[in-house]
Structure formats: structure tokens, C-alpha cells
């Protein structure tokens, strides 16, 4: 690693002013599990690292009924994976968290870092979008909030402006009778980047799908919603024909590439298969929620 300056910011204002002082040559350090690897491999050589883990409040991980979940920028993937309220109310996110990297990586890596890295295959992105997550940003001009769905602009690219920091993710409290699922497909079970990831969040009221979110990972430059697939089910009573039709629409929405992990043709096939499975499992979970 090339030498760099190192600061432990104690406030968001201090962190933003450091980013400004180094004008594009400083990197935020939270988990470091991607950043330090890229620095060791010579892909990045920041002049300064700004550690934000000691900023008060960024370690907040809390669930409030009626309000929802807050995940601060310093909260690790492992904390989210273990949190009882996440397991109970955000099952898709819990599934994604426990499939990211290894235990050792999850103990360092942050969920916000997984988002800021903006990899098309980021495991936590599809379930967070399906749950309607908002990204809270802090910059020299103050704070703003962006829906996670609009946060990504391309591989490694986001709407984050220069000298701006993501401070937390906010997830609304799920509507009762909602089933959430994240299915990850890879060449092996662990320590794997997703070949295809599918998240579903589905609300069922009196056997009618009132809200459906189908989000695909690793099959486009950013995680994408399969809106036409959602429309097949929304407002209808789900049966196996509709679920199959939605899965085909999801496949049509995908725009995958060929790479070392899989061919584009295989990815397209797996989008249909995984969407079908994810919808079936989400329906089961939504119905289980009905019985006390």
C-alpha cells in the first residue's frame, strides 16, 4: 500500500471538510473490505483516508414499530444479519446479509459500504430496494434523501456528489402480510459474488397482491426493478399462471453480460427460475403472516 494521511473524524462536518481539503483524493474508510483490497492491488491510491467509524450516531442500528429500520454508515453486515428485528421484519435483507462474503468479512464490511461500492452484484441492494430503502446523505450543502432505487447510476457509479457522505439507510416498517425473500445464485454456496440475485417483497391482503417489488441484481449495470413483472401481479389474486408470467417478464427486463462467472444467456434463464422461486416463497411467507 502507498502511504496516505489518516484521520479519524469525530463529526460529519469534520469528515466533509477533510474530503473538501483533499479535493477528490481522499477516501472514506468504514469497513475497508473493498477499499483496502483495491489499495493493495494498486487500483486506488488515495492521499488520505477518513475513518468515519468514530463519528457518534453512525453505529446506530435500530427498529421502531411504525417507523422502521435505521442502518447507520458504520453498522456491519454481521450486525444486520444477527439483529432480531431484521430477521423478523426484513427477511430478504437478513438472507442477503448472511450470504455476503465470509463471517470475517461481514464483521468488518458495512451495509452502507456495500451500497456505496455500487457493484451490480451487491447482495444487500436488491432486498433494500424491494423494502423501499432511502439513502440519507450529508454534504457541505446540508442533508438530502434519495430513494435507493435512484441511487445507482452505473457499475461503481452513484448520485453521491463530491464531498458527500452516506450517513444511514432508512427502511419503512413493512406493511402487515408482507413476504420478503432474497435468492442468490452462484457457482458455490459461500464466498461468492452473485451470478444472479433476486429480491421479492410482496404484500398480500385478502389474497390480492397489493404491493409487489421484484428487484434483480447482477443482470444489468445497476440493480433494477422488474416493473412489468410487478404489474402482472399487482391488484390480482396470485396463481401459478400469473407467477410464471411474472417470472418471464422479469427475465425480459434483465440485460445481463457475459463474464467469468456466467454467460448472459444462462443469467437470463436463471432470472426466470429464481424469480419464480422467490415469488412462491414470498407468497408462502405473506400467508404465514396471516395466521397469528
Amino acid at each position: 500500500m502507498r502511504p496516505f494521511d489518516y484521520y479519524e473524524a469525530t463529526s460529519l462536518e469534520e469528515a466533509v471538510s477533510l474530503l473538501g481539503r483533499y479535493d477528490g483524493r481522499a477516501s472514506i474508510l468504514a469497513g475497508g473490505t473493498d477499499l483496502l483490497v483495491e489499495m493493495k492491488e494498486g487500483l486506488r491510491a488515495p492521499a488520505c483516508l477518513v475513518n468515519i467509524k468514530r463519528i457518534p450516531g453512525l453505529d446506530e442500528l435500530s427498529y421502531t414499530p411504525g417507523e422502521g429500520l435505521r442502518i447507520g454508515a458504520a453498522v456491519t453486515v454481521r450486525q444486520v444479519e444477527r439483529h432480531p428485528a431484521v430477521r423478523q421484519h426484513y427477511a430478504g435483507l437478513a438472507q442477503a446479509a448472511c450470504q455476503l462474503g465470509s463471517v470475517q468479512v461481514r464483521n468488518r464490511a458495512t451495509v452502507v459500504g456495500n451500497i456505496c461500492r455500487a457493484s451490480p452484484s451487491a447482495d444487500t441492494a436488491p432486498p433494500l430496494i424491494a423494502d423501499g430503502a432511502l439513502v440519507c446523505l450529508f454534504g457541505a450543502d446540508g442533508t438530502r434523501t434519495v430513494p435507493l432505487e435512484e441511487f445507482f447510476t452505473g457499475p461503481g457509479q452513484t448520485v453521491l456528489r463530491a464531498h458527500e457522505i452516506v450517513t444511514e439507510l432508512r427502511l419503512p416498517d413493512p406493511i402487515p402480510h408482507t413476504g420478503q425473500v432474497y435468492l442468490k445464485h452462484g457457482r458455490r454456496l459461500a464466498m461468492e459474488l452473485a451470478t444472479v440475485g433476486v429480491a421479492v417483497s410482496l404484500t398480500l391482503q385478502d389474497e390480492i397482491c397489493t404491493r409487489v417489488r421484484i428487484v434483480l441484481g447482477a443482470v444489468a449495470p445497476t440493480p433494477i426493478r422488474a416493473s412489468e413483472a410487478e404489474a402482472v401481479l399487482e391488484g390480482r389474486s396470485p396463481d401459478s399462471t400469473l407467477v410464471s408470467m411474472a417470472a418471464v417478464k422479469a427475465q425480459e427486463a434483465s440485460r445481463p453480460i457475459d463474464d467469468v462467472r456466467s454467460s448472459a444467456a444462462y443469467r437470463r434463464q436463471m432470472v426466470r427460475v429464481l424469480t419464480l422461486r422467490a415469488l412462491e416463497q414470498a407468497l408462502t411467507r405473506a400467508r404465514q403472516e396471516d395466521s397469528p
Binding site: Y6, T33, L36
Partner: peptide
């Protein structure tokens, strides 16, 4: 590997397993 893939450097940091190669000593 020195990049967090192999786990040979696993230690416990405040009781939790981490890859020591992905932690700066100052942290």
C-alpha cells in the same frame, strides 16, 4: 492471500473473527 479471501490471518478483534489483513493497525 493478504486480500481477505483465504482466512489464514483470522484473529478475534473484541471477540469477533476478522481478517487481520483487512484491518489497519490504527483502527
Amino acid at each position: 492471500c493478504d486480500v481477505g479471501d483465504c482466512g489464514a490471518c483470522t484473529i478475534l478483534l473484541n471477540g469477533e473473527p476478522v481478517n487481520a489483513c483487512l484491518v489497519l493497525a490504527v483502527e
